[in-house]
Nucleic acid binder design. Structure first.
Length: 430
RNA sequence: GCCGCCGUAGCUCAGUUCGGUAGAGCGGCUGGCUGUUAACCAGUCGGUCGUAGGUUCAAGUCCUACCGGCGGCGCCA
């Protein structure tokens, strides 16, 4: 029994017990109005002087913001109450009287202050709504993959070597040796496909990049599916299906949260396969015609991604980037060896990349050559090369950034709200 | 790493142009109000003006350095 069920109208005129926290208290002499939160929702509880013992009424008068309480009463439908329902209180027990001067008031706060009080900020309705959507997105991704023949095989977080470059790795001591926090589970899921066919890993990844932007965290979560025998084309189709499934699931299960966030649902309802596709070369052409200063061969920057993303009302794949701008393990396009069979999925409405994916090199000789060309230490990749020695198959995969997906689906301005405790270049507390 | 902006009460800010006794709203506290909606009304508590130097009769205000944060870029998911 929770507040969400009361708000669904299932418990009208019934007696209920709510265990929760006081969000605000207002009084009008003989009537006290409490807004109570229980994790499932918020509702107004009214305490009339004549309904409770005098001592109880005085207790209510002492209630501070964020005090924890247990309330018993009758559910009433009432237009005067926010949300249309309220609980007329018959009994109330104070579990803990919160200290006065709860730091977060109902008025606005600056971002620095809120970030330093993240452990309390997550209680606020907006943050609750966002994190509920986050949880739904994660569950949707897992459900989609689990229901489509994937086995979850999580990758290690402590790793001996870099996937792509050492400069952006967090280093940690490891029994007299060095270890690094993973930047991607991809190489390891490329190993487990030979055991399970279709796999995915889900976990935190770490980038020691000094990125100071509204779309970067130093610690973020990725879902990384990897599929044996999947071509580049199969990979894109899977991404379309997974993203569509996820958006539909959130629209279905977290409608209330999206509406609370004042998220326009129209663009989300348009998310259906097939997504748009544009090659990197076409994208550069478009950008140049729009006056952007970009040459073929350069990777797309934030303003470029935003521009492309705004051209389409559905997600768009930008595919076949120059080989030099991308990772060593990507399969060259058989029709043009200057580009690789990769695609980034750009979310619409100006949100950029949420997925990066590619077909992987499966030929041993070619992979050896690429490792050398990228100046990577071959000894660190011996195990990875083994995968091309014993039953190599064409295979593809992608990584979906959870926080960026949350940011897009909730239409947020900054990624710091998409994870309970964000880690950024300037903040590791709380 | 680069460019720009900002640090004044617990919070959000005004005061800086042109140096002259530290301000408001919210929150807290005290009291009032029998339907409040960021409730309202009256009273009250609350300050090393980011830090350190400097200029000056006098610095929140002018100068220098440092620290912290925010916004944008680069890199990336």
């Amino acid at each position: 029994m929770g507040i969400s069920e009361i708000l669904d109208g299932k418990l009208t005129e019934k007696e209920v017990e709510i265990k929760g926290w006081v969000v605000t208290r207002r009084s009008s002499g003989g009537v006290q109005f409490l807004i109570v939160r229980d994790g499932s929702g918020m509702i107004q509880a009214t305490v009339h002087k004549e309904d409770v013992a005098p001592q109880k009424f005085e207790d209510v008068d002492r209630l501070t913001q964020e005090s924890s309480i247990i309330v018993k009463g009758i559910v009433k439908e009432d237009k005067r109450a926010p949300g249309g329902y309220e609980v007329r209180v018959k009994d109330l027990k104070i579990v803990h009287l919160a200290m006065p001067e709860y730091p977060l008031s109902k008025k606005s706060h600056g971002i620095d202050f809120l970030a330093s009080l993240r452990h309390l900020w997550i209680r606020s309705p907006r943050q609750i709504a966002i994190l509920k959507v986050r949880a739904e997105i994660i569950k949707a991704c897992r459900d989609f993959l689990d229901e489509n023949g994937f086995t979850s095989t999580d990758s290690p977080i402590l790793t001996p070597s870099a996937v792509e470059g050492v400069a952006t790795l967090f280093e940690t001591p490891y029994f007299g040796d060095k270890a690094f926090l993973t930047q991607s589970g991809q190489l390891y899921v490329e190993a487990t496909i030979a055991a399970f066919g279709k796999v995915y890993c889900f976990g935190p990844t770490f980038r020691a990049e000094k990125s100071k932007t509204p779309r970067h965290l130093t610690e973020f979560w990725m879902v990384e599916p990897e599929m044996a025998f999947y071509t580049f084309e199969d990979n894109l189709k899977l991404q379309e299906e997974m993203v569509t499934f996820t958006v539909k699931r959130v629209l279905e299960k977290r409608r209330r949260e999206l509406e609370f966030l004042k998220r326009d649902l129209v663009p989300l309802r348009k998310v259906e396969p097939p997504f748009y596709r544009i090659s990197y070369t076409e994208a550069v052409d478009k950008l140049q015609k729009a006056g952007y200063n970009i040459e073929w061969g350069e990777d797309l920057g934030a303003p470029h991604e935003k521009f492309i993303s705004l051209q389409f009302e559905k997600p768009v794949f930008v595919h076949r980037y120059p080989a030099k701008a991308k990772a060593f393990y990507m399969q060259p396009d058989p029709e043009n060896s200057q580009v690789v069979l990769c695609a980034d999925l750009m979310a619409p409405e100006g949100y950029g990349e949420i997925i990066g994916g590619s077909e992987r090199i499966c030929d041993l000789k070619l992979l050896e050559k690429r490792i050398e060309e990228f100046g990577l230490p071959r000894e660190a990749y011996e195990w990875y090369l083994d995968l091309r020695k014993y039953g190599a198959v064409p295979h593809s995969g992608f990584g979906l950034g959870i926080e960026r997906t949350v940011m897009w689906i909730c239409k947020l301005k900054h990624i710091r709200e998409t994870i309970p405790f964000p880690r950024t270049i300037t903040r590791i507390y709380p």
